[in-house]
């Protein structure tokens, strides 16, 4: 019995053209027994940053609350919104604080960062459970279906996808990956972050 697989669940994030997408399944389980089909693992951090927290469910909630607190403190002290790069390092150092008794979570970060010229640049990152950062240019995956997500994403993803095409790509990648994973599934949620709006859609999936 692995702690990382105790509750199940998977998250993926992808880069598009002036947009990013992050998506997860909605299952909460106790090993093979399904408990909930509406367990959110992705949380808004700012208007342009979303954070996915697949792993042990108790730590999903604990870390969500901890990051909410730390980001609020940052906003108050700095009198500005946190940028995705900064937030990624906040995630990394928060996890590394518990180097020898870790939170069993592998976070995924997706957001748009502000450029000096006032534009927006897509940003995604993922870390392991002790905060080792991975800044990828294409897509990042985490959770019990990670190997399946890698395989499908490698086949479907292409550079510079427009928001609607990115939505389709990430949705198909996630749905087909979780359908081959017993610990993930039971519905999906997808967020596409663009410079002027966020598209959030809940997808119906197989319930087995």
């Amino acid at each position: 019995m692995s702690i990382m697989e105790y509750n199940g669940g998977s998250v993926i994030a992808m880069v598009g053209k002036e947009c990013v997408a992050i998506a997860s399944d909605l299952r909460l389980g106790n090993q093979a027994l399904g408990i909930s089909s509406n367990f959110q693992k992705i949380f808004p951090v700012t208007d342009r940053i979303y954070l996915g927290l697949p792993g042990l469910a108790t730590d999903v909630t604990t870390l969500q609350e901890l990051f909410r607190f730390r980001v609020n403190m940052y906003t108050i002290k700095e009198e500005r919104e946190i940028q995705p790069e900064t937030f990624a390092h906040l995630v990394s150092s928060t996890l590394y604080e518990r180097r020898f008794g870790p939170y069993f979570i592998e976070p995924v970060i997706a957001g748009l960062s502000q450029t000096p010229s006032g534009g927006f640049k897509p940003f995604i990152a993922a870390t392991d459970l002790i905060g080792c950062l991975n800044f990828a240019k294409d897509f990042v995956v985490a959770g019990t279906a990670s190997s399946k997500l890698f395989g499908v994403a490698e086949g479907l993803w292409e550079p510079d996808l427009e928001p609607e095409d990115l939505f389709e790509t990430i949705s198909q990648t996630l749905m087909n990956a979780v359908d081959r994973d017993a610990y993930s599934g039971w519905g999906c949620v997808v967020h596409v972050i663009t410079k002027d709006k966020i598209i959030t859609r809940t997808l119906k999936g197989r319930m087995d």
Partner: peptide, 19 residues
């Protein structure tokens, strides 16, 4: 070795699963 990477891709592209 890469069954877990390839099979879900084939489900999608050959069987048109989730489409």
């Amino acid at each position: 070795a890469a069954q877990s990477l390839v099979q879900p891709f084939l489900d999608n592209q050959i069987y048109f699963k989730n489409q």
